[in-house]
């Protein structure tokens, strides 16, 4: 289940959907990202998230498929928000359920890391009177490459 949406999401609903997704599930790992100040700009009040409609969903589907080939994944749920978001709002959710905890953790972290470097989303930081496109962090590229 992959959703790209403007509106907020409820991690509890996603958790329940993962838990109900089948028998044999022993492990549910989730990750939620919140909007925070990147440190590039002073007085940041929020973000604007742009994406490439169509491609975004395809890329995330591909990441989930790849994770499912590498690890035991009973179900994965990914939500990414777009548009205008204030500091501390929820921006991204990745949840994986599996028979085994190592697989749940690995698949969840892999999807999240790969999403940051390959899904076409772009963040613009907003202050009272200016805007600034966030630059990709070298650390994010490195984390994603560590899965290769």
């Amino acid at each position: 289940m992959i959703r790209v949406q403007q509106q907020d999401f409820d991690p509890a609903e996603e958790y329940h959907a993962l838990r109900d997704s089948g028998s044999g599930t022993g492990a549910i790992a989730t990750f939620t990202g919140l909007v925070r100040d990147s440190g590039d700009l002073k007085g940041v009040t929020g973000l604007f998230l742009e994406h490439y409609p169509g491609m975004t969903e395809q890329v995330i589907e591909g990441l989930v498929r790849e994770a499912s080939q590498r690890w035991d994944v009973r179900e994965a749920r990914v939500i990414h928000r777009i548009g205008r978001l204030a500091l501390s709002e929820q921006i991204v959710f990745v949840g994986v359920c599996s028979a085994h905890r190592g697989d749940a953790f690995a698949a969840c972290e892999f999807i999240m890391d790969a999403l940051k470097t390959s899904a076409p989303f772009w963040k613009k930081e907003i202050t009272g009177d200016s805007e600034h496109w966030v630059e990709q962090k070298a650390a994010d590229r490195d984390r994603s490459q560590s899965w290769d």
């Binding site: 490439y52 991204v92 470097t117 390959s118 989303f121 630059e135 990709q136």
Partner: peptide, 10 residues
């Protein structure tokens, strides 16, 4: 064909 800066989502 699409051209864009390195992505910064997540």
């Amino acid at each position: 064909v699409a051209f864009f800066p390195p992505v910064t989502g997540g």
